[in-house]
């Protein structure tokens, strides 16, 4: 198993800074959804990770901890994530994306 980044929606949505997206070395990996967190009363959405593209470098963790000072991202073993976003389940919209979360590990 290997580590991937996992973003806590409630902590991220409270800040909504979109910084990590600009520092992840991998393209199309940290995405942003206006919908995430709406069910919990947050207005502006949250970042999330397409875990099939994440290389586990933890640069986003550094950015969220030190630049955003928000501590919303943790590295986690992929088989410990009950649900995550995968590229095949991500839909792009006009200004934001939406993702259907599924189990990232088969079997």
């Amino acid at each position: 198993m290997y580590l991937v980044a996992d973003i806590n929606v409630e902590i991220c949505a409270a800040k909504n800074c979109k910084l990590c997206t600009q520092y992840c070395p991998e393209a199309n990996t940290i995405l942003y959804s206006d919908e995430l967190g709406k069910d919990k009363g947050f207005k502006y959405g949250s970042a999330y990770v397409a875990v099939d593209r994440c290389k586990g470098c933890a640069q986003c963790v550094w950015v969220c901890d030190n630049m955003a000072k928000n501590h919303a991202i943790k590295m986690i073993m992929i088989d410990q994530l009950p649900q995550a976003a995968l590229t095949e389940n991500i839909m792009y919209g006009e200004k934001s994306t939406t993702a259907v979360l599924t189990s990232p590990v088969i079997g």
């Binding site: 393209a27 995405l31 970042a47 934001s96």
Partner: peptide, 9 residues
């Protein structure tokens, strides 16, 4: 960034 599809794969 994070809201459109980038050309880099």
């Amino acid at each position: 960034m994070g809201s459109f599809k980038e050309v880099l794969e």
